[in-house]
Design a binder for these strands. Structure first.
Length: 607
DNA sequence: TTAGGGTTAG
């Protein structure tokens, strides 16, 4: 009621004041004592001018605000300088203070100039607060700055970061003046909001209009191309860079490396990376995460080691990439090192790094550590919960996984498709048929999530593992999407456990039609025969594999020894530390199975 | 004095 009775400007003021005072509450005492001091206006001007020209990073917003509040008659230049200073260090508190100062000045009746609005809009961009920006936009129109190129470009950027692509487009279309910056912001508005193709199309539209792109624009367009994974387009854009002799700077280089990695040209990406005249931590992050996305985890870890050899300090994003590799390689030692690094450098264990740590511990088999990190996180999101749920499901802790799922719902975090993969896997491994069926139904009924093929796979697995093969078959027959090889694979696996030879033969036929070259189908069928002692049939299947030249794909695994990750697979030869690694594999096997499975010293060689 | 760039977990 109180808010409704206020004008938009006053309500913005009240809101900003409350927020700003809240964020600087620890300095309120200083603020109060300062404000009571009688300082001459001249002294204030001198102090603000020196504050604005100081090279020291601007952290304490209270001083700036208290100085500013005491100014009886500030001139616009001083005011703009102070705003610029406040916004020079990017943080939400300072952005909020900038808005607060803006509203206070408005209340004092000061006339803003064309330099003020881009600064105030920059604060709105930092805060990503649509209501603030819209109000500033209204003031811009009212005060006659709606045709200023810098103001319009700033507003376009604001609407872009707030996800309002339509407003970006509208501002662009209505503006009588457009330059390369306007086009870049327009394209970026589309790209940042997932309209990659539209962004690229706009680039070509601009080129057709006779404008020539610069490095900044090309970085945006190439990053859109990376997301599209369109190599032909990527090469065309690279040619554009060459033909106009654009400066091969670190931004453009990073965008090109990312594009080639995502478009499947690893070697070209590496050669671009090596040729870059300057690299920064983001260049390394791009390389590490790009290799990890290609599932070349070992190579990504090698890149990380090289980065450290060259003295480049990793940042939070590097650690996320490295932890992702550790999760996939089972490199617990390196993962623990990253955890220590995080603690040593006081990196907050929340957000990306925290979630990646939880995932790493869960995938490396130390679920207790995963839960410890999870428990220590001050803010948890969908990724934190999903990592824990998927981890617990994989560890066979079905009940616990589901408890976390219900807790997540209780605190108002909405699950997504991946969460449900974890939830349904938990039910399947825990034999919780009825609960699994209910949760599967809830996916659409309650959470409006359309089940994907992997969810149907989980359900088939759930029924198959519980011995309900007829129900599983019926489920498959009523699926709204075409069952794929993984679905039939689950049925076949269930047949092997239950010794259902006839059905297994039928499913094998289907599977061979879908993917005749895969070895798994034949192996499962052969094992099904073996499970009911039909040894001759089992042998026949193996012979058929030989006739059709289907080989068992050698399993590939990895092991970490003294912090170095080595990949090894069956029947490969020679590794500098083959003896050590072989011994470690033997030890691990002994530990896990209680038997010396690798008694023959020539069974495993190292890549 | 004011506007635009690259990487990122389940």
């Amino acid at each position: 009621m109180f808010y409704l009775s206020l004008s938009p400007v006053t309500s913005l003021y009240v809101c900003c004041t409350a927020n700003a005072l809240h964020t600087t509450s620890n300095s309120t005492k200083q603020f109060n004592s300062f404000i009571t001091k009688t300082t001459s206006q001249q002294h204030l001007y001198a102090k603000i001018t020196s504050l604005c020209s100081s090279p020291i990073p601007f952290k304490d917003t209270t001083d700036a605000h208290s100085l500013f509040s005491q100014l009886r008659d500030p001139n616009i230049d001083l005011y703009n300088a102070l705003l610029r200073r406040v916004l020079s260090s990017k943080c939400k508190e300072n952005a909020l203070l900038a808005i607060l100062m803006y509203v206070e000045m408005m209340c004092k009746g000061l006339d803003f100039d064309k330099y003020t609005y881009p600064l105030v809009i920059k604060a709105c961009v930092e805060l990503r607060e649509l209501r603030y920006g819209r109000l500033v936009h209204a003031h811009v129109i009212k005060n006659g700055f709606a045709l200023d190129l810098y103001v319009v470009n700033s507003l376009m950027r604001f609407y872009g970061v707030c996800g309002c692509v339509g407003s970006v487009r509208k501002a662009f279309d209505r503006s009588p003046l457009r330059d390369l910056v306007s086009w870049t912001i327009l394209i970026q508005g589309y790209v940042d909001n997932g309209y990659w193709k539209e962004g690229v199309d706009l680039f070509f539209e601009m080129v057709d209009d006779g404008l020539r792109a610069d490095e900044r624009m090309m970085a945006v367009v190439i990053s859109a191309c990376a997301k599209l994974g369109d190599l032909r387009l990527g090469k065309k854009l690279h040619e554009y860079v060459w033909s106009y002799k654009l400066n091969f700077d670190v931004f453009l280089g990073n965008a090109l490396v990312d594009m080639y990695l995502k478009c499947g040209e690893r070697d070209v990406a590496l050669s671009v990376f090596r040729e870059m005249p300057m690299r920064n931590v983001i260049s390394w992050n791009t390389l590490i995460s790009g290799l990890a996305q290609r599932r070349e985890f070992k190579q990504a870890m090698d890149a990380f080691n090289e980065m450290q050899d060259q003295g480049v300090k990793p940042d939070e994003n590097t650690l996320v990439g490295v932890l992702n590799c550790c999760s996939n390689l089972g490199a617990l030692g390196v993962g623990k090192w990253v955890h220590k690094y995080v603690d040593r450098n006081r990196i907050q264990v929340t957000g990306f790094a925290g979630n990646a740590l939880v995932d790493m511990y869960a995938k490396c088999g130390t679920m207790d550590d995963a839960l410890k990190v999870f428990g220590s996180m001050s803010t948890k999101d969908i990724y934190s919960y999903t990592s824990v749920i998927v981890g617990l499901a994989a560890h066979g802790k079905a009940r616990m996984a589901l408890d976390f799922f219900y807790e997540m719902l209780d605190i108002g975090i909405q699950p997504n498709e991946v969460t449900f993969v974890g939830v349904l896997t938990a039910c399947s491994h825990g034999g919780l048929v009825e609960e699994g069926q209910k949760l599967f139904a809830d996916m659409w009924r309650v959470h409006k999530l359309k089940p994907r093929i992997e969810h149907y796979g989980c359900m088939v697995d759930l029924l198959g593992r519980a011995g309900l093969i007829d129900e599983a078959m019926e489920f498959v027959q009523h699926m709204p999407i075409e069952p794929d090889a993984s679905i039939w694979g689950s049925i076949l696996a269930a047949c092997r456990i239950q010794g259902k030879v006839e059905l297994a033969e039928h499913v094998t036929e289907i599977l061979v039609n879908i993917e005749s070259e895969k070895d798994g189908t034949y192996v499962l069928m052969s094992n099904t025969y073996a499970s009911v002692s039909k040894w001759r049939d089992a042998l026949e299947v193996r012979k058929a594999m030989k006739r059709q030249k289907i080989k068992k794909v050698p399993g590939c695994s990895s092991i970490e020894l003294d912090g170095i990750v080595s990949e090894f697979r069956r029947c490969d030869k020679a590794h500098p530390r083959s003896k050590d690694i072989y011994a470690a594999v033997e030890q691990l096997t002994l530990h896990l199975t209680g038997t010396e499975a690798f008694s023959n010293g020539s069974e495993y060689f190292i890549v």
